[in-house]
Amino acid sequence: MTRDPFALWVYLAERPLLWLTVTLVAYGLADRLSQAARRHPLANPVLIAAAMIGAVLLGLGVPYDRYFDGAQFVHFLLGPATVALAVPLYENRHAVRRALVPMAAALVAGSVVTLVSAVLILMAFGVSPAVMASMAPKSVTAAIAMAVSEGMGGDPALTAVLVILTGIFGAMVGLPLLGALGLGEARAAGFAVGIAAHGIGTARALQFSPEAGAFAAIAMALNAVLTALLAPPLFRWLMVQG
């Protein structure tokens, strides 16, 4: 039996149970806040929960790896959840089939514009090529983005961070921005959010409507494939031009 609170803390801090619980409780709080704010885009639950947990870890001096030992059980579910996106996609298959041409064109245009503009802006700021390579594939799902970044001489860990920040930003501003510009139709807006903000944008689009979610899911999948194929030659070409 442990009566010393510090010894108890050391015991718990090293076990997955504590950080798994903290992750679920923080998300529960963040989701309640987001609901209380009537799903206002700035009250993004991923951002709020990650900021709360990050502050706790930094404040207590707990390394991220220790935290991830517990949080990995939640992280693991990303795989089966990605597979489960087949269900809204299947339920909206007729709408998707009717929109094959607009999807293909929007995919190529959106993907290229995003990548090229990001690299050109970083070039103008004079950051190192490694940071540019880490930023270039930021709009696609982390597994692909990290592999692409590493292949181009980037830092996969920095890419993972930029992928998450891009997803949160796209989920926050995507639908309101497109709505304000008169581009808020569910299929077009959902597809655009899937291209620009991968799974985090798709999660937001699913809350908006199942149809927007289905188009976001297919955009996310297609952009992952296109970016893996297109980013390395495009990035090399931009480096030569610059």
Binding site: V46, L57, L77
Partner: peptide, 20 residues
Amino acid sequence: AHGLLRHLSLLFVPAGVGVI
């Protein structure tokens, strides 16, 4: 599937904390 996807945002929290 819909139950799992309703809380898709939660699944990105561990990666999001990696920003630190």
